[in-house]
Design a protein around this nucleic acid. Structure first.
Length: 585
RNA sequence: GGUCGUGUAGUUCAGUUUGGUUAGAAUGCCGGCCUGUCACGCCGGAGGUCGCGGGUUCGAGUCCCGUCGCGACCGCCA
């Protein structure tokens, strides 16, 4: 046997046993007469002891060990005279009788400990070293645990895990595709799937009425801390269901995960909020409900006083920051700067302080008297001691800005505890959105999403007003997953393509196989897909998904360890029938 | 495509506002001392194209222009 135990399991009850451990040297501490070595593996840290008086050769050998040497040590488990409360193996140590260096190591560029001294860049370059650290190992173990629990739950619900192809047909709708040239079919390309959307719908047509897959998806779009070019979805589809069947099945899955991974119970059903309410109350389609501070419309209260900004505004809204009447001029200026950033895009910020001493002071006192300001308090629910923050402008933009301001206040006031989880369903999304640039409607979810039956009559007249049977699971302001009931009627699907501005020929070229399939008895069906990486990072309390992916890419889509993407030889290009443009040569 | 931040020792950073002698600290590394450490301690040492290129200047880590890397965000992501 290579080793008899791991570095995390020995306890005081093992004292006296002769054991063999193998692992990495984390640190050596040398004294005149003795040497301590911390030996690490995936399971923990165990202290090895060498005594110069009793075993001088071994002790000298131990002193030559460097950080991250791979060693095997045999010895006797002994109770420590000085115990370490901080680690699980802190009551024991190993009196080593045999030490083997399995592999020496160069000095690593950063320390491989719980908290490394290395920054992101160097740790990404040496990802295999960073992955040795316990925070990363915990994250990947959490990811594994969650994947197991998901499969366990869905298996019990009768879902089949079915693999779908990775090389598929390119569909220009939605995100940009990554493409793969076909050597055997010169000039033609596969695409990597943005999701297995059409395949899972075909599986419904084929009668696999409960499908699931934990699957890689690929989107060639610009990245963020929570977006990678390749990412993992928990992809699911069900036949013979209505929206509520799907929501309750996957609410069950979410609760199962919370219970069995974090030991968090939810006794009540998740809140369900229509899209329009989410937008009007939180200025976001993924509201963070860990705190209130709802947006209140105050337009009718503030117009007609001769204040141009309000009088001309399509919309005026406010949020109440509880207990913030004491904000300094400096703090308010900073908030104004915040909302004026181009990313937020507000023209300015108006505020009213309802001070503890009863005085009311606003940044627009010239136009509004105390009675008017008191009226605002009544409409918004602002009390003595509160601060009212007001934005005005175009409705949609102003709501989004208020939503950002609300989140900023939530951060400043520490209202976002990462150990509190408030899940909700956002429902009744619009079916399509208008794009000014290309002068056409785009599917908000995807082109197979079913309109709400009661809205079908206005699909021709006013597509922008049609609601969809589409839903998102949102937890703490993070969109964890989303899905819809699908269109299973080929005539309605054809109508949908028409609304999206496809000619019948274009629809046939891109989606013909799906529409054909629907002619042969498609069951009513719908599904959902979850961003697995985001869900793991949420459970891990992290804001970047990179720390829950073993080998992630940076924000330019590069793997800085492999240094990919990279050029390929002329020979390979020739074989693939690809000629590069002048810029790339 | 855009906005912002950042790049100095193996590593993490200070120094840049106001240009001026030999660019510092901590940690890691190497050597010495130390028999109960576990962030060990003490003494000593090595270690720098200040991202790269150009410009201004008597003089540039510091100012200007360009460029590259990294990070965050907006657009984008059905």
């Amino acid at each position: 046997m290579y080793r008899t135990n791991t570095c995390g399991e020995l306890r005081i009850s093992d004292a006296g046993k002769t054991i063999t451990l193998a692992g990495w040297v984390q640190k050596t501490r040398e004294f005149g007469g003795m040497t301590f070595v911390d030996l690490r593996d995936r399971y923990g840290l165990t202290q090895l002891v060498f005594n110069m008086e009793t075993e001088p050769d071994l002790c000298r050998q131990a002193r030559d060990l460097g950080r991250e040497f791979v060693v095997r040590a045999t010895g006797k488990v002994a109770e420590r005279s000085n115990k370490n409360q901080n680690i699980p193996t802190g009551d024991i140590e190993i009196h080593v009788t045999k030490l083997e260096i399995l592999n020496p190591a160069e000095v690593p560029p950063f320390t491989i400990e719980e908290a490394s001294d290395g920054g992101d860049e160097i740790r990404m370059k040496y990802r295999y070293l960073d992955l040795r650290r316990s925070p990363l190992q915990r994250n990947l173990a959490l990811r594994h645990r969650m994947a197991q629990e998901i499969r366990k739950y869905l298996d019990l619900q009768g879902f089949l895990e079915i693999e779908t192809p990775v090389m598929i047909k390119s569909t220009p709708e939605g995100a940009r595709d990554f493409v793969v040239p076909s050597r055997m079919n010169p000039g033609q390309f596969y695409a990597l799937p943005q999701s297995p959307q059409m395949f899972k719908q075909l599986l419904m047509v084929s009668g696999y009425d409960r499908y699931m897959q934990i699957v890689k998806c690929f989107r060639d779009e610009d990245l963020r801390a929570d977006r990678q070019p390749e990412f993992t979805q928990i992809d699911c589809e069900m036949a013979f269901v209505e929206q509520n069947d799907i929501l309750s099945t996957f609410e069950g899955m979410a609760k199962h995960l919370f219970k069995h991974v974090l030991n968090v119970d939810f006794d009540k059903p998740f809140l369900r909020i229509p899209y329009e309410q989410a937008m009007s109350e939180y200025g976001s389609d993924k509201p963070d409900l860990r705190f209130g501070m709802k947006i209140k419309e105050i337009g009718s209260q503030v117009t007609g006083f001769g204040f141009q900004v309000f009088d001309d505004a399509e919309y005026t809204g406010a949020i109440v920051a509880k207990g913030c009447a004491g904000f300094t001029r400096r703090q308010l200026d900073d908030l104004t700067e915040f909302v004026k950033k181009p990313q937020i895009g507000a023209k300015g910020l108006i505020y009213t302080r309802y001070s503890d001493d009863g005085t009311i002071k606003s940044s627009v006192d010239k136009f509004f008297d105390a009675a008017a300001l008191q009226g605002w308090a009544e409409v918004t629910g602002a009390k003595t001691g509160d601060l009212l923050l007001i934005l005005a402008g175009k409705k949609e933009k102003t709501l989004k800005a208020l939503g950002e301001l609300r989140l900023e206040m939530g951060r400043q006031l520490n209202l976002m505890n990462k150990n509190t989880f408030i899940p909700l369903w956002v429902v009744d999304f619009p079916l399509v959105e208008w794009d000014d640039e290309t002068q056409r409607f785009y599917a908000m979810h995807h082109p197979f999403t079913a309109p709400k039956p009661e809205d079908i009559p206005i699909l021709d007249i006013d597509p922008g007003k049609v609601h969809a049977n589409a839903y998102d699971l949102v937890i703490n302001g993070v969109e964890i997953g989303g899905g819809s009931i699908r269109i299973h009627d080929s005539r309605l699907q054809a109508k949908m393509f028409e609304v999206l501005g496809f000619t019948p020929e274009q629809a046939e070229y891109r989606f013909g196989f799906l529409m054909n399939a629907f002619k042969y008895g498609a069951p009513p069906h719908g599904g959902i897909a979850f961003g697995f990486d985001r869900w793991v990072s949420l459970f891990a309390g992290l804001s970047s998904i990179r720390d829950v992916i073993a080998f992630p890419k940076n924000n330019m889509g590069r793997d800085v360890m492999q240094d990919s993407p990279s050029q390929i030889d002329a020979e390979q290009l020739k074989e693939l029938n690809i000629r590069l443009g002048q810029n790339e040569l």
